[in-house]
């Protein structure tokens, strides 16, 4: 079980979405972390054969995935970021239709649909129209469709986007349950989601995999230290300009800052254990605090 990305580049006119990405995925959960525009979705779409790379190739057990055509897609389960569905279909019809285009015989399709509906907690809502489902329920229907064919490669693009905290926890647990005996590639900009479920994390930036490894390895790789210090109100702005700050907690007399710095920023700064969120800030800098990232 080996999905190999070899020197894959993808250009959209003058924009380079992927720049010679190489990586090998084996059984396990991989978290793809990066800000919007980092190339996560483009990479996932190439892995799902939805897009052809401008150069490079992707192989499954040594065979080109585009040459494998349907045989490769038979191994695939995909939940896109912008998950579309047929609004007037019931949840059951939706899954049965996806089962049919995944090549499941009707009898097997019925069995798998019922099993998955129970697994994702939608059994009693199976006759509801898709358009009537809540955001979380839709996502659960989405993961169910991705699992219909018992895929060896499960690709989930931002599966927790827009979910409330309860749904997110439920979803994370569901992904952990489903991750056995397959490759799961999960992209998100919610750092905590990856931290909990991924065996290996890939940090993507500007179309490249900037760093990869286990959560611990990535945290250890950060050359900066993490400090916690209380700063008086008039000085907060100057500290924000001077240091990378991963968290600000407003206090009555000033603010408590979580600062990334090789040197101790203040005399009373306390050294903290770095987290993946700090690493994210370190690598993605200003963009990590932009609209797309939730820590």
């Amino acid at each position: 079980m080996e999905l190999k990305i070899i020197e894959v580049s993808k250009n959209f006119e003058s924009i380079t979405a992927l720049d010679k990405v190489s990586y090998t995925l084996k059984k396990g959960v991989y978290g793809l972390l990066g800000v919007n525009g980092a190339g996560k979705t483009t990479l996932m779409r190439i892995l799902c054969t939805l897009l052809k790379p401008s150069s490079g190739s992707v192989t499954w057990n040594g065979h080109d995935i585009f040459a494998m055509d349907g045989k490769y897609r038979n191994l695939l389960g995909y939940l896109p970021q912008d998950f579309g569905y047929y609004p007037d279909f019931t949840v059951y019809d939706y899954l049965m239709y996806i089962a049919s285009i995944k090549g499941l015989p009707p009898f097997v399709a019925k069995q798998r649909t019922d099993t998955l509906l129970a697994q994702v907690g939608l059994a009693k809502d199976k006759n509801k129209k898709m358009k009537k489902l809540s955001g979380g329920m839709k996502r659960r229907a989405g993961i169910a469709q991705a699992m219909l064919n018992k895929p060896q490669i499960l690709i989930l693009d931002e599966p927790t986007a827009g979910l409330d905290p309860n749904e997110r926890i439920r979803f994370r647990n569901l992904i952990s349950e489903l991750s056995e005996e397959r490759i799961v590639l999960l992209s998100t900009h919610i750092v905590s989601d990856i931290e909990f479920v991924a065996n290996e994390i890939l940090l993507m930036q500007n179309g490249q995999i900037k760093m990869s490894g286990t959560g611990e390895e990535i945290v250890c790789s950060m050359p900066e230290k993490v400090w916690n210090c209380k700063i008086p109100k008039p000085l907060v702005d100057s500290y924000l300009k001077k240091y990378k700050v991963s968290n600000i907690k407003n206090l009555h007399e000033g603010a408590e800052l979580r600062i990334l710095s090789a040197n101790q920023p203040t005399e009373d700064a306390i050294l903290e254990t770095p987290s993946l969120e700090d690493v994210f800030l370190y690598y993605f800098g200003e963009k990590a605090g932009a609209d797309d990232v939730q820590i």
Binding site: L50, K71, R73, L76, Y78, F83, Y85, I101, K102
Partner: peptide, 18 residues
């Protein structure tokens, strides 16, 4: 228009029988 294209084309029959 329903944005179901990505799932459709990533299935085994998405580029042939479907």
């Amino acid at each position: 228009s329903w944005k179901s294209d990505a799932i459709f084309f990533s299935t085994v029959y998405g580029r042939n029988k479907a």
